[in-house]
Design a binder for these strands. Structure first.
Lengths: 431, 431
DNA sequence: GTGAAAGCGCTAACAT
DNA sequence: ATGTTAGCGCTTTCAC
């Protein structure tokens, strides 16, 4: 039975869809009278992106055109009174409380027969509980906020996806906000999510974020930091052993016999506490030191995306003192480097060995496949979701094995080398 | 002035963040003495929880099942007495209505002096309006739901980002749900978003979606279809001229002198009304026909992602009748093809010309840069957001130029060729 | 210009 | 086991 399957699969779905027949909408016909005004309506003009080259593309005509409505255009009824819990109770001949108990499967028991009647009424009326009202009354939203710098970047996209999965398994939905590396956007979403009464908030911050810290304090919110742990924000965090991973990567490159390993970091000029890339650089320099190599003049800067890094790398690799081995702080940068190397006809790994960091899915499909530093993304996502939802994990407790809890706790995951071919190794299967 | 800028850019942000120092919470204890008491918050157990079924991390297990609430799964909102509008009113010495007027800048005017006092009180108490309560009372959430097959894929990721931007300009936030190409997930999110009372819903459907259609009907929701327009769902839609774009691409390849152009479509065996890729195939075959070429045996199938397509292409290109020109239904597939060509040491475009569709950002950085079919993504995103928010655009009206409105309307955007190098053209600058 | 008060649809304590 | 009802925090009439 199809419907049973769906219900089982997706627990948030409190009621099966009425697949057949439109429900009759209760009685009464109260028009919704709302005042039109008061909204902030702006009229911003949009910057238009790419302009395709080429002839006869129809590019310069009006941006769109209307086509005729399709066959069978059945206009809907204007706006019908919403079916509420009261309607259900009336039809089922019970009190509203019982309807509630049935819907929520608690907190009080309901006699099987009554339950049947209520469910039948729900189905008959096509009733859907109003989540806003539920949230209002229960003070619970089943919403987790997630702020990332830019979900279009593979690393963040994959992380967001993993978090969505982990959240779904806990019956929560995820609100994602892209800060686009802008401090004000970060704060904006923080505020918006918190105002929305999310159950908790996972923050992959893009910077030092004093503003974000102030906002979080102001709300006394349940926040879990991820990936980056800004000093200004003293809260529970889920991070990776970035330093260790970078060290592994650099050592590996060194073991391939390179005289030295160059490093491609971000564009920040000063090291930042809790910033993953700062840690990558630290790991790199530790490995260099322990091998007796100098890091002097071997650290380069580039934005964290393949496009800008491609250009940076074009310069770097065309220069006179081209390194023979390069550790990149992120896979996305490494991908840009690989592309530049190809442009310059440099053989990777022959003339240039490259190792990245993150193990994004795409790393397996680069040419050559990218050796990188990976981690258990799913586990980290799950940990973040758990930390955000479970008080017991955050507050110190003896039942919990006596661990120290509360703010400032950091859960660090190990990172490991994922060896492919860009480093110079030749495993049996390239992909 | 910083604050003005932020407010202009991000209208949802109703109040500036307390950038310096935490606001003092108590002017006396006025915030703490409310309602009789301890009712809430002590033992609020969760009605429904869910957790993965089966052991381990197997991919094929049934995703979720109903379970009893877990231990320590308290998940309540902050315990601290919340500052409410009442507290603000008390401190400001006004009525609660006035506080509301100030917050919303309407609907009634407020004397400047009073406004000052209220704003001062808000600041002093660190008051933040509760969006859930606002939504409850105003019946408005300022939330737009967006369902995409998989935001990790560049095309959808970029589209989601564009929609987020467009929505922000209209003061709306976007709830994104990944259906992962699963019908049940699509319905799940549809239901969840609609239950959340989103202002509207943009659906980039992954399939024919009869279930989705039923769900939408049941809610009488404001839905805008995008990208794909399933026959089962008769609603307002924003789409691209997929057929025309594909035709352009194929013609272009033909003009390069290839005997014929092969086409790489999806894995569906039957054409579907409203499916972009079906249209791409249609456009391809039109162009072939008009050039007097047969399409017989020249259409190949592959999943819509670079990884699987890489393997498919490895076979295809290593075979005996390797085409010299290939039109791919999506850029992501084209990227997989390019990678396979490299693996096989095939020169692109020399031995194999390739054209994609979508113009994802990455198309500019492939090797060689990918010629593809592009569109004005930002404009489409804006159109979708506008359609979802503005009744006037959906409902027929004479003031609106007499166009027919309501369901079934389709706004089609033009697509254009973006010429780079994979087709065989050599513009002055490769990137 | 301001205040009082009636909800919004639901949850859950308390009564029966 | 079921019913009654007091809120949840806010918006928005409607009266002053």
């Amino acid at each position: 039975m199809r419907r049973g399957l769906r219900a089982a699969l997706w627990s948030l779905a409190q009621f099966p869809a009425p697949l057949s027949g439109r429900p009759d909408r209760g009685a009464g016909n109260c028009a919704l009278s709302r005042s039109p005004g008061g909204r902030r309506g702006e009229s911003l003009t949009l910057a238009v992106g790419c302009r395709p080259v080429g002839a006869g593309t129809g590019r310069n005509r009006a941006p769109y055109e209307w086509t005729a409505p399709r066959e069978g255009d059945t206009r809907r009824l204007p706006r019908v009174a919403k079916v509420t819990r009261d309607d259900v109770a009336r039809l089922a001949g019970t009190s509203t409380a019982v309807v509630s108990y049935v819907i929520n499967n608690g907190p009080r028991p309901v006699a099987p027969a009554t339950k049947e009647r209520v469910l039948a009424a729900i189905k008959e009326l096509g009733y859907r509980p109003d989540r806003v009202a539920q949230a209002m009354a229960s003070r619970r939203t089943d919403l987790i906020g997630l702020i990332v710098p830019d979900a279009r970047q593979p690393f963040f996209g994959e992380m967001a996806h993993a978090i969505e999965q982990a959240a779904a398994e806990r019956g929560q939905m995820v609100l994602v906000g892209n800060s686009d590396y802008l401090d004000e956007r970060e704060v904006h979403y923080l505020r918006a999510f918190l105002g929305m009464r999310v159950s908790g908030l996972i923050l992959i911050s893009a910077g030092p974020s004093e503003h974000a810290a102030a906002e979080i304090d102001a709300w006394e919110a349940r926040v879990v930091l991820m990936h980056r742990r800004p000093e200004a924000i003293d809260d529970v965090a889920v991070v990776l052993d970035d330093t260790g991973g970078a060290q592994l990567a650099t050592r590996h490159l060194l073991e391939h016999g390179h005289e030295y390993v160059a490093c491609l970091g971000g564009v920040e000029s000063t090291p930042e506490q809790g910033d993953p890339v700062t840690d990558h650089i630290e790991g790199w320099s530790r490995a260099m030191r322990e091998a007796g190599r100098s890091t002097e003049g071997r650290l380069f800067q580039s934005p964290y995306n393949r496009y800008d890094t491609y250009r940076v790398a074009l310069d770097l690799l065309a220069g006179p003192d081209r390194p023979t081995a390069l550790f990149c702080a992120t896979d996305d940068q490494a991908i840009g480097v690989l592309r530049a190397a190809r442009e310059l006809d440099l053989d990777v790994p022959g003339e240039l060995a490259v190792v990245g960091f993150d193990d994004v899915k795409e790393a397996a499909l680069t040419d050559p496949p990218l050796t990188t530093v990976g981690s258990d993304r799913e586990a980290m996502a799950k940990a973040a979701v758990d930390l955000v939802l479970d008080d017991s994990l955050r507050v110190s407790s003896t039942r919990n094995g006596g661990v120290q809890g509360g703010k400032g706790r950091v859960r660090q995951f190990p990172s490991g080398l994922v060896i492919r071919r860009s480093c110079g190794c030749h495993p049996p299967k390239p992909y």
